[in-house]
Design a binder for these strands. Sequence first.
DNA 1: GTCTAAAGTGCATTATGCTGCACTTATAAT
DNA 2: ATTATAAGTGCAGCATAATGCACTTTAGAC
Lengths: 68, 68
Amino acid sequence: MNKEKIGYYIKMRRSLLSITQNDLAEIAGISLRSLKDIETGKGNPTLNQLEKIAEPLGLVIKLEVRNG
Amino acid sequence: MNKEKIGYYIKMRRSLLSITQNDLAEIAGISLRSLKDIETGKGNPTLNQLEKIAEPLGLVIKLEVRNG
DNA sequence: GTCTAAAGTGCATTATGCTGCACTTATAAT
DNA sequence: ATTATAAGTGCAGCATAATGCACTTTAGAC
């Protein structure tokens, strides 16, 4: 998953949970500006930022061997 | 996966492929210093850094729904 | 023990992510 | 067409990730 896909995935997941960017940013404890950049595939978030966003969305970050 | 686990996973994967930190850093196109910090769970790498490291190791970064 | 290669650490500099502010652009409802 | 809400953008300042250098520590080979 590249930045664009990760951003899109977060956006879709947030949409599924029916919360706004503003709400998620507050819950996650990050700036609205950063969340917007991440969802639009811009920027280059740190692992901390991603984890803060993933957690309230019920998502987890994984590192796996390609394919299998 | 938190920073520590991701670092450890990278370290183990690199070890499995029998390459040094120096080699991986060069192949990945990142600094040796950064790779060291990432493998030891220090620092807070960006998505770009992780992707650069993951690629030559045959790893992929994923974002998934927790559990299922 | 010595020697060597690999891995880890402290520190200063540079590059860039994170943030807040102001503004613009959708999108939807009335 | 107006209004309201959510989402996207440019920019500047601050915080910190990324880097290079010098050094120390560890792990193995001899």
